[in-house]
């Protein structure tokens, strides 16, 4: 530790993360009507990413989640940055789907929960949208609490090529998550709230790292929490790099950072 008035910060504690080519799957940008002072515009988000050695992030816009996908996507387009890959908002709506297709999306974040965009992920409710996402290999992000576990199973039974990333699964997820992952090879999850004692380490060593993606939950959570868990996990270097960003880059068809 340095002198009392100083702050050792991240550079000493997590310096090893600088070599991990971190790619965050779970970040949002823009003002939030709910989260007030925690929300970050692009410069603040990039600054926070810098503090924690996060080189790239898959980013959605709060307006696309809290309000309207079209408005949110326009706002997200204005935040274009080589470090930020857009996770667009979309609804089961032909006009929106056409606009989404024009953006040649790599990823979307969908919010079907009843207090959000309030739609069904059944074939009768979102069939064409989900067909588009799976046919175009669009990575589909969704917060776990927005969907019941049984609906995850139905969704992946109906759309088996859909590459689904469950965000914020929470640390109590394993008794649902593992059977689903055994059954559906295109199911992934992020590490932002996967925070039980030695959970990440144990699960990686028992089940592999291929379907776990580093997530920070920026701007709500400090990246320190999920980064600390990844840094302290007693796993192989290859597994750590896969979670840090390798898995996500593979899914997005991107190479390593220059």
């Amino acid at each position: 530790m340095r002198d009392a008035a100083e702050n050792s910060g991240t550079e000493t504690l997590l310096a090893e993360a600088a070599d991990w080519d971190l790619f965050d799957v779970n970040a949002r940008v823009g003002p939030s009507g709910v989260h007030g002072e925690l929300a970050l515009e692009k410069p603040g988000l990039l600054e926070e990413m810098d503090r924690f050695f996060i080189r790239h992030a898959l980013v959605s816009h709060w307006a696309g989640e809290e309000y309207d996908p079209a408005v949110g996507n326009e706002a997200l387009a204005r935040e274009a940055d080589e470090r930020l890959t857009p996770a667009w908002a979309v609804l089961p709506n032909a006009e929106l789907l056409e606009a989404l297709a024009a953006r040649k999306p790599k990823a979307v974040r969908i919010t079907p929960g009843p207090t959000q965009h309030n739609f069904s992920l059944a074939k009768w409710g979102a069939g064409p949208m989900l067909e588009f996402l799976q046919d175009n290999a669009v990575l589909t992000l969704m917060v776990r609490n927005d969907i019941a576990w049984g609906e995850v199973a139905s969704l992946l039974e109906n759309f088996p090529r859909l590459r689904l990333v469950l965000l914020d699964t929470g640390y109590r997820a394993d008794r649902y998550l593992f059977p689903l992952m055994d059954r559906f090879p295109n199911l992934y999850f992020d590490s932002a709230t996967y925070l039980a004692h030695r959970q990440l380490e144990s699960v990686v060593n028992e089940r592999g790292a291929e379907r776990i993606l580093f997530g920070s939950r920026l701007p709500l959570f400090t990246p320190a929490s999920s980064l600390g868990v990844l840094a302290s996990a007693r796993i192989s270097d290859a597994d750590r790099l896969a979670i840090a960003g390798g898995n996500l880059r593979r899914l997005l068809g991107l190479g390593a950072s220059a």
């Binding site: 910060g9 504690l13 925070l195 004692h197 400090t222 320190a224 600390g228």
Partner: peptide, 14 residues
């Protein structure tokens, strides 16, 4: 119950 390193990293990077 929870992973100690997350809270530790939070404090140390605050």
């Amino acid at each position: 119950f929870l992973e100690a390193s997350m809270t530790l990293a939070h404090v140390l990077t605050a």
